[in-house]
Each structure stands twice: as structure tokens, then as C-alpha cells.
Design a protein around this nucleic acid. Sequence first.
DNA 1: ACACAGAACGGAAGCGCTTCCATTCCCAAA
DNA 2: TTTGGGAATGGAAGCGCTTCCGTTCTGTGT
Lengths: 341, 341
Amino acid sequence: MAASQRNLTIADIARLAGVGVGTASRALNNAPGVAAATRKRVLAVADQHAYVISPDASGLAAGRTGRIGLVVPHIDRWFFGTMVGAIVSVLRAAGLDVLLYDVGDLDDRREFFEHLPARKKVDAVVVVAFPVEEAERQRLTLLGVHIVAAGGQHAVYPHACIDDYLAGRQAVDHLISLGHRAIAMIEAVDPEQPVRPSGRTAAYHRALADAGIAPDPHLVVTTNWGGVNGAEAMARLLSQSRRPTAVYAHSDEVAAGAMRTIRRTGLRIPEDISIVGIDDHPMAELLDLTTVHQPVDEQGRAAAGLVLDLLRNDTPPVDQAITLPTHLVVRRSTTSVPPIP
Amino acid sequence: MAASQRNLTIADIARLAGVGVGTASRALNNAPGVAAATRKRVLAVADQHAYVISPDASGLAAGRTGRIGLVVPHIDRWFFGTMVGAIVSVLRAAGLDVLLYDVGDLDDRREFFEHLPARKKVDAVVVVAFPVEEAERQRLTLLGVHIVAAGGQHAVYPHACIDDYLAGRQAVDHLISLGHRAIAMIEAVDPEQPVRPSGRTAAYHRALADAGIAPDPHLVVTTNWGGVNGAEAMARLLSQSRRPTAVYAHSDEVAAGAMRTIRRTGLRIPEDISIVGIDDHPMAELLDLTTVHQPVDEQGRAAAGLVLDLLRNDTPPVDQAITLPTHLVVRRSTTSVPPIP
DNA sequence: ACACAGAACGGAAGCGCTTCCATTCCCAAA
DNA sequence: TTTGGGAATGGAAGCGCTTCCGTTCTGTGT
């Protein structure tokens, strides 16, 4: 009885199978150098006792962890959750485990980079969709493992992402092509993240310039990420003298908020105001929101693929920067510019 | 040079600090039995060399992992993502790491319970918001660690959740109190999960019975989880001879889909049809959807708290089943029953 | 018949830590 | 002054594995 309480070790299995620990180890790891019959016998014994190798002991001896660290802000949001799901799926299939670190709010983030809880715990790290600052980058080198970025452009790391500028252009150019000239932008920033130049913002300005439309600072408002803030931002936009005929929102969530404000104001979408978002959030379909689709799953899978490459060859993969295409999805929230009454 | 490549071990730190490995270990672990001056010296040396203890070696020797396994379906959905975020936050603060396992689709799920990838990797497991079947439960015992459920009622495990029946009653009773009698229900099931009796469904039937309203099977439709399916289900509902004056949807996402269908049909919300959901998804506010709020964060934090209790005392906590309250949030999607034309 | 190359195998050393036990040291109590 | 006793400490053993090296055992070529 007492003996059965203790977990079996590889030595027990070896003894029960009548082999040495070395052979048992090779058999259980599917390593070469074991006769087929022997391997079978060892596996049978292990199976019979529901024995599995201790990954920690194995890792300690072999010098790897079998784990990948995922550093992600706001796991509760669709974009990040989807990305994480895709990454986990690929890594799991490769037999790797995922250690999750949330750096959503500033405190968590500081905490993470200060103490680097992932140290000596992972074979690689994926930073999911947030810009890593220079100081943070320095700290990350202390981890001494490969780093990959998913869903954000980080020239310094291998990464998989979309082209934010192009996505923005697809949205704004769509409005322009419909004849709109009074095009507003609701710029979204994450209060928890350091502000940085956004491709989505640049796209707006350049698209207007390319179309010969004079920029109007009153048509640009900035707000925090999130639907409710989008609603508030839209209210600001509507409180001005010049009413836009179209709105370009940095994300579908922001657009959703804006739509509520527009409708509450008594205006119709798209007859009075057209609106376009970015992301193709599942909600966009329910809202009939025209948007720019970005392949979140694919970004995640691609990033996970980079990790696997990095782990296999120690030479960096040829294709270090994967940029996935976005495309416009036209629904019922945009139409051509209304005639001036 | 060559020496500096190698990672330092505790023996190196001990030597550099002029102490034995035992003392170094105690100092670094903040364990008793070390003179203050000695501890300070050891910590200084460690700090200077950016040394941290190897958690794997430490765990191996001490017989723990410092990790908690999270088993969760659909990490990309708001409910699960929010739950995970809350759990991670509490566990991280307690110095525990989180290993994430996604059992969203049936294959992943079978895979997980068949191979139990978490074996010998975690000190406890949290199953997030999905019903564990008897066979799966059997397998889980093989893990040999504490198990806690978050966001689902599992009599067999310590858990934190809401009362689905009560939540359903709050929604349906609200409609009844507004005078509605032709109340439809859109029942949501997860195609990836085994079907099981739902408190939200029971609430509907009993609420009607309690109010003396004759049940009408035509007013009940079942659909898969998700907004698009809710839209389709609502279409089915509207294609019938008897049009409901109110709809009770099992979740806000389903309700959102239904709202689109209602509006596309040319009906107004709430003038022609009232609708109520459950969850208080962030989207509900943007949709002006009346719903029943459930505290997802709190469920996650409570579940994580149970884990910590279980790990501390080996005696199960007194409060093994934590049920958190829900409450109705009235917005603009419900109103009293329209007069019969 | 013999030699010899491989394959199969056993076991010791070592991965980086914790913990226990034995030892030393210091100070208060008598 | 002597004597316990507790605090501080060093180091060996052991956590459960991998891997290397030396040994044994085949079968093959001649």
C-alpha cells in the first residue's frame, strides 16, 4: 500500500520491465538504440501503471523546458484571445506547453519586465500584439531565449502581422471612392500602452492627401480603445459645425460605439453617415458594419510557426517577417455620399 | 569568456558570496535560518549577476511545480477570456504560473483528456466554464492534483459560479412583469459540448408556469452558440404564425443576432418586440440591450482563490461552492407589451 | 573456424536545486 | 567560570530524469 502511494519513477518502470534505466529512457522517448521488442515491453509496463515521464526532470537533465511564454495584454478582448487561441493550438500540436502572462495594465506590465517571471521557464517567448519599448527589449534579452512577435510590427523580432497602413488605406480609400470628402477619423489609442505612430492614422492622412482632400483637424478625434469610448468620440465629432458624411474608425469596436451615437442622434447609417471599421470583429457582421478584415488566426499560427522554426534549426528562418493580407468587407454601413440638401 | 557563457548555478553564487549552497538556497528563498548580513550578501551577489533560481530544478527537488493548469474552451470568446484574465491575475500575484490548455473543439478536448498533457506539470487545475463528463472526471483524477471549476456548476469540485436558473428567472420574470405573455426563448447550446440540462432553460419554463402562462412549443427554438446563429434562430421564430412580443435569449451574443433579424424584418425594438439577454457582454451596452449581469471577473478571482486555499491548507476550504449574484440591467431593448392592434 | 562491426544495453555521472543532519559558534543562565 | 541551547552554517544525499561510455551480444564475411 505504502509503495503504491509513491509515484513511480523511471527506475521502477525499468525494473518492472527488466531493463536498465538508460534503455527505459530511450524506449519512453522513442529514441533510437532500443530493440523493438524491448521498447514494446517498456511501453507496456509504463502504460499498465499509467506512468509518464516527469517533464520537469526530463527537461532539467536535457536542458530545455518544453514551454513557450506568451506575453499578452487584455486576454479578454477578441483580438488577443483569438491570437492566443491560434498560437496555443499550433504549439500544443507540437507538444509544447504555453505559459500565459498578462500585461494588460501598466502595473502588470512593469511587473513583468522588471521581474521577468518567465526566466528559466521557457524555451521561447511570443509577444502578442503590443509594441515593446527599447528598455523592455533590453530586459527581454535577459531571458536568453528566442523572441517572436505576433500581430505587431517589430522590426527587431521575427514576426507575423498585417500592414496597418494598408488596412487603413483600404478603409479610407473605400470611403473616398464612394465620393466622400468630409471624412472623419476616430483614432483609437490604448491608455495602457505608450502612444506610438500608427499606420492606421498615417493611412488616413495620406489617403486624403492623395485624393486632394484638404485636411480638417476638426474631423479627427482621438479616444481610448473600446466601444463606449467610440460612442463618446462620435458625440464630440457630431457636436461640431461641420458634420462628416463618413467616419473611419480605427477598430470595429470603436465603430460600434460610434454607430450607437449616430443612431441616437437621429441620423441613419448609411444614408446620413457612412462608417467603416477595421478588424472584422465577429460583431461587425451583426452590426452590418463595413470593415477591413484581418486574419487573426493566421497571424497567430504563423507566429507559432516561427517559434517552431527557431526551436528546430537554431538558425533563424529565412522568412522572418510575415505580413498577411487584409481585405475590405463591404456591408451595409457605407454608401455613396448623400446629396447636399 | 567561456565561463561567462554558462549560466550560473546556485553553487556559483554560493562560492562568490563565500557561503555554502545550503545557506545560499535559504537566503535566495527567503527561508529562515540565515543571518541578515549573510542573506544580504548572497542577494547582492545574485543581483549583481542577474541570477535567479531555476524554478524547474527547485521544483524537482522540492516536489512542486509552481504551475496551475487552466483548461478552457474558446479562449477567443469574451466570457472565457475574461475568466482566464481574472484567474491569471490572482495566480500571478501569488507567484504561480499558468499553463493554458484549450479544449475548444471536440478533437482538442478528446486529446486533452486522453493524453492529459498537464500530468506532472501542475499543482492544480482549473476547468473553466464547461461541464466535465463522468469519464473525463475519471481521467482527471490521474492528474493527482486539486481541481477547481470556474464559472460552471460542478458539484464534485470546489467551484465559483453564478446560479443560471436564477439569472434566467431574472430575465424572464422581467419580461413577464412588463406584461408579456407571448415570450419566446432562444436556447443556445454549444455544438462542441455535450448537451446537458440548462438552468437557463428551466428558468423559462418555470417562470411561465408560475405566471400561469401556457407553454407554447413554437415559441422555443434552439441554436448553436454565437451571434449569427441567434440571427438565424430569430428568423425561424418570426416565420411562425404566432409572433412573440418578447424574446428571451440565453446570451447577449445570441440576442445581438436576434436583434439584427428583428430590425431587418422591419420591426422595432422594443416597440414591437422586447428582447433580453444574459451576461452583460460589453456589446450589450452598445446595443442598448437589457440583460442579466453576471460578474465574470469575480468568478475567476474566486476560483483562483479556491486554488490558493487548496494549495495552502491541504484541507479543503470551508466555502467550497461560491455562488455569485447576478442582477438585471434594464436598457432600451425591453418595454411593456404592445397593445394588440 | 575466427575476427570484427554494430546494435543493444546497463549504469554512473550530472542537470540545479532543497533539505536534512551534523557541526560550529555565541550568549545567556547558573 | 562553566554549560546548555538555539541560531547559523556547510555539505551530502536525493529529486527524476538524460546521456555518455564501456560492455555484451549478435550476425556476417572469409
